[in-house]
Amino acid sequence: MPKTKEAEAGPAAPGDAGDLILPVDQQAASLKSKDLLGIEYLDADEIQLILDTAHHFKEISQRPIKKVPTLRGKSVINLFFEPSTRTRTSFEIAAKRLSADTQTISASTSSMVKGETLIDTARNIEAMYPDLLIIRHAFPGAAHMLARTCSAAVINAGDGAHEHPTQALLDALTIRDHKGSIEGLRVVICGDIAHSRVARSNIHCLRKLGATVVVAAPPTLMPCDVEALGVEAFDRLEPALEGADVVMTLRIQLERGGKLSFPSTREYFNLFGLSRDKLALAKDDVIVMHPGPMNRGVEIASDVADGPASVILEQVSNGLAVRMAVLYLLAGVGAAKKNVETAA
């Protein structure tokens, strides 16, 4: 790909833009905050910018040589204080395809096991001049704490049951790929809403993009006053599914407690498992999504997960593009902000 003049001139393009092929308006645009802590804090234009940028990044992963020099010389640190395969790997690959240097620190190998606090860990990492910090943590607000402590751009890769913004963005990209637009769609999120950061980020994201969001869960797995998030709530799956354009099922998070939330996985599947029969209540062109990891036969039947309506693996591929886009957009903002602070 020939290097464009716009790419060279674009103030938000960090380092050598290489053979990036972004339209002019996206080269100049940027996110308002130095961090991505949650979808709640973004406006619809910022979400569209990330999705449009991600759309252009998709193609890189289909090249024979899957690497561009966009973030060459940038340093990305993954801080994973909670188990993760998909998200951690996705961020690592995304950073590497943009030529950033990456380092992953997981809870078991960090000084947290020696009693170091999160703030002290953050200060020590900050002293090594990273450009981007990605954090996965078991408690809500951990990413916010890091963002207050560090001048590097912080990306929340999941903070307890609070937010998981890149998951919602990759879900939105996947829906947009299939439906053209998100405006006016009816999206059903079903399962363990109470313990799900994916649900919270998706509710914010889809509503900002104009969708109607419906949540369905047993009352024991539905958080209090959920309607305040701007959703319709159902305590049975069947009526929620009527007229659905998109159905997202969520994993039951037994590790987050709630042993009294339902009597058995068998009964849960009978009532809330997404089976072919139940899915037939949705629109004919419905798509089925799951953020993973999936418990087959608990929240979703295998023939649905692997069936023609499933876009579950496309979500994973889109995750890569979305994370490349977020890294790209925040690396630029972070550098600009630091320059301003130095000058002041």
Binding site: G141, H195, G257
Partner: peptide
Amino acid sequence: TGTAPMNEGRVSTALGFKGHP
């Protein structure tokens, strides 16, 4: 209440905290 660090209500729902009713 268990380990709940805050009130149960619309804010605990928004922030993903276990709520103390």
